[in-house]
């Protein structure tokens, strides 16, 4: 595999009736990164993922996976955990894993030891001969994750992976994702849990109404949405400070919005000169959550 991009999506469009669900969307995912696909409900995340999996076809545009135009055998190199997921209830854990592995082109003799190793990794080896219907919901989800990675895919796509997991299993899943990145795999996850995005992802694409509204690595996105303001906590009176345009209370702190050309350093110097006793002084960077709400909100107006 020597493609520069694991995934390259070139202005894809998908419409149902007159409504464009995905509209002129382009992005790239680099090898070995964890890429976040975010957006409000109904933004077109799942549709985009299904087009990447060749489950539905875009009306126009191209998708390249691992350097090749999308085709049937590419599916063997991708692991996909759909948002709506399930397994055959009557099949045993081991048989389920082996059957789905075989559909990804991995024969039984290769799949069995891998399945056992993965079951051991998640501490479920003793459940291997149980039927799926006998497992708890969380256990079923973990088996589903194993099914997703049993064929050693280069690219793993997870649609809302932690949506119905308890904190323990969610952490287990995150550990598995980090393991995969360490092995050089590429992971794409879709979610609307911003804390997970900040915790896990290298880069993100945010879509709203099928369009690209934010795309890039997290520090530069945050820098872009920084509005030249600082957060301060202090004792006593603050008074009027030169260069501060406005102020507002944010929880226990005061957010000072600075005038153009005024740097936080200048404000800090003035506060110290004035003898204000500071408990906290920091650059106010918006959380992804705020950016998400702001961008999605603007778009919807």
């Amino acid at each position: 595999m020597n493609a520069a991009h694991t995934v390259k999506v070139n202005s894809i469009l998908k419409a149902y009736g007159n409504r464009a669900v995905v509209n002129d969307l382009s992005f790239e995912v680099a090898p070995g990164e964890i890429f976040g696909l975010i957006g409000p409900n109904g933004a077109g995340k799942t549709t985009t993922i299904r087009m990447m999996m060749d489950i539905i076809k875009p009306d126009s545009g191209e998708i390249y996976i691992l350097g090749e135009k999308l085709h049937e055998t590419a599916k063997n190199k991708i692991g996909y955990l759909p948002e709506e997921r399930g397994l055959y209830k009557k099949l045993s854990v081991l048989e389920s894993i082996v059957y789905f592995a075989s559909l990804k082109g991995v024969d039984r003799n290769t799949a069995l030891p891998r399945a056992k190793a993965l079951l051991k990794r998640v501490d479920m080896l003793s459940h291997r001969n149980k039927k799926i219907e006998e497992l708890s919901r969380g256990m079923g989800q973990i088996i589903q994750v194993i099914v997703t990675i049993i064929h050693d895919p280069q690219l793993i796509i997870l649609d809302e992976p932690t949506a119905s997991l308890d904190p323990v299993n969610a952490q287990l899943l995150k550990d598995i994702m980090l393991d995969l990145r360490r092995q050089g795999k590429t992971v794409i996850m879709s979610t609307h849990r911003m804390n997970e995005i900040e915790e896990m992802c290298d880069r993100i694409l945010m879509i709203n109404r099928g369009r690209n509204v934010l795309y890039g690595d997290i520090p530069s996105i945050k820098a872009k949405y920084r509005n030249n303001s600082v957060l301060v906590e202090y004792d006593g009176e603050l008074g009027q400070i030169e260069g501060v345009q406005s102020s507002r209370q944010v929880n226990h702190a005061l957010e000072l919005t600075l005038a153009d050309g005024v740097t936080p350093q200048m404000v800090l110097t003035r506060l110290v000169q004035r003898g204000v006793s500071l408990r906290r002084f920091e650059l106010s960077t918006p959380s992804l959550n705020e950016i998400f709400i702001k961008v999605a909100g603007n778009e919807n107006e």
Partner: peptide
Amino acid sequence: KENRVMEILLSSVS
């Protein structure tokens, strides 16, 4: 469909 196995199948086969 009810089990939601369908999407997994379709991500592996046409």
